[in-house]
Nucleic acid binder design. Structure first.
Lengths: 255, 255
DNA sequence: AATCTTGTTCCGGTATACGGCACGGGTCTG
DNA sequence: CAGACCCGTGCCGTATACCGGAACAAGATT
């Protein structure tokens, strides 16, 4: 009932075409017309024509056999989109600094809807590496970078996230009252701490990178396996991300 | 006249929508409805509805003001496509060939930020094996595969790498003028040579694997301890990697 | 205040994309 | 060697989903 029942009447051909593309991108060996039609619930002729135009536009290549496969054009236009975000170059020195200081996995993430997307990372130098994948996503409410962004814009984001707080581990915060308290803690300390709320036994720290007006546009994060974290490290790691994120924010402000 | 005059009758909505997306991706600050309509030669209402569906599908974000801007969803699906481009199987025969021809350690690496990541390798058959670890990383500016990738996209990468050129051995290139010269050498010869600039007494050769448009997505490399390299071998090894990488590039183009 | 823009909505006509069906060529199964 | 399947590909009539133009409110610029 909170949702508006009236849908903005979206263009069907375009959505189907993009669904086809998304589907193709995830299957290295390509797929045939019939298989695609079946999996997407479309008619065979429809799928065929969509593929035909995607081929004409260069997004899909029709191999010798029956397989249609995605070309790298998607990748090219996708690459253009992050090149324009110069966040990565602005933040890169701080990523290196954090990596040198901690030896753990460092990441840079941006918010997208109620998730974060990892747009840059440095692997940890220690043998046990905790892993985030570039381009991967995680929910806002249970990972360090996400909670940092959440806390920076809680007024705006709280009503949106209140609808659903999915559980991932037995430590995941699933009640709004607990989330309120956690956000308050984050705001007071200037960094967020995730005690394994998204991935078992994987702790993470996060701090928001903000525009001068306070809008969070990204976050820096440190991920560390719980075993390697000494008691004294917790405050130190938190302080490190907080200060590093602040420096990136300052760089943005000075442009 | 060589072209068939009969067009395969492509779906108009899908092509327009993708054109909108491509256009948006190239403008960091986003664009308004009217501007897009003007530039693409579409009617305003048409553009508006296309944008509406792109927003609904998560490809485009409607900022506070009048600007529509591309999200990172394009980047995400683009990234998926390149991960599924099974470079390893495409390149595997060439790895074997290089190994058979040289008996040295062969590797396949992909760029990630300002480093390369080794995604595949074959150990040398000779007793002295050099160092490459699967999943390991090395800086772009001082190892064969890295310099090959660097040289293939120097326009784009030079400004990024200019900030920092860490030293690893007394042969490491640390000045931009020296790097410029080295890149020029690489471009002329079609392969890169590393005279022990990352790891003492370990030489390496590299050649870039590129997309049809010239973008480097990976590189093949040969690593060899300096003692085992005869004077005549240098040009031979270089030619071998260059040609092998070219064959892999050709395979990619034919997909 | 007047005249441009801009983003957004509505509506009627028609081009357009749809599903159903049929064809030719593979591959397995009997 | 047929038969019964799959597959990808064209065709066609029809309904519908898309399009363009006009009209709207709200800012911007003058």
């Amino acid at each position: 009932m909170t949702d508006d029942l009236i849908q903005p009447k979206l263009d069907s051909t375009l959505s189907k075409g993009l669904r086809v593309l998304e589907h193709l991108v995830q299957s290295p060996e390509g797929k045939g017309v019939s298989a695609l039609a079946r999996e997407l619930g479309l008619s065979k002729s429809n799928t065929f024509r969509l593929l035909q135009t995607l081929v004409a536009l260069g997004y899909v290549k029709h191999g010798a056999g029956k397989a249609y496969t995605a070309t790298l054009k998607t990748w090219q236009i996708g690459r253009a989109s992050i090149e324009n975000l110069d966040l990565r170059s602005l933040a890169a020195p701080e990523l290196l600094y954090l990596s040198a200081q901690t030896g753990e996995a460092i990441c840079l993430a941006v918010p997208e809807n109620l998730h974060v997307v990892y747009v840059d990372k440095l692997d940890g130098t220690k043998p046990v590496r905790s892993w985030v994948a570039l381009g991967g996503t995680a929910p806002l409410h249970c990972v360090g970078v996400g909670k940092a962004i959440l806390a920076a814009n809680y007024d705006r984001l709280r009503p949106k996230i209140a609808e659903v707080l999915p559980r991932f581990t037995n430590l995941t915060i699933t009640s709004m009252s607990a989330l309120d308290a956690d956000v308050r803690w984050t705001q007071e300390h200037g960094y967020a701490f995730d005690a394994g709320e998204f991935c078992e036994r994987t702790l993470s720290f996060g701090a928001a990178i903000t525009l001068p007006e306070g809008e969070a546009v990204a976050a820096l994060g440190i991920s560390v396996p719980d075993m390697t974290l000494g008691a004294a490290d917790e405050a130190r790691f938190g302080g490190l991300v907080r200060d590093a994120a602040a420096r990136v924010s300052a760089k943005i402000a000075g442009r």
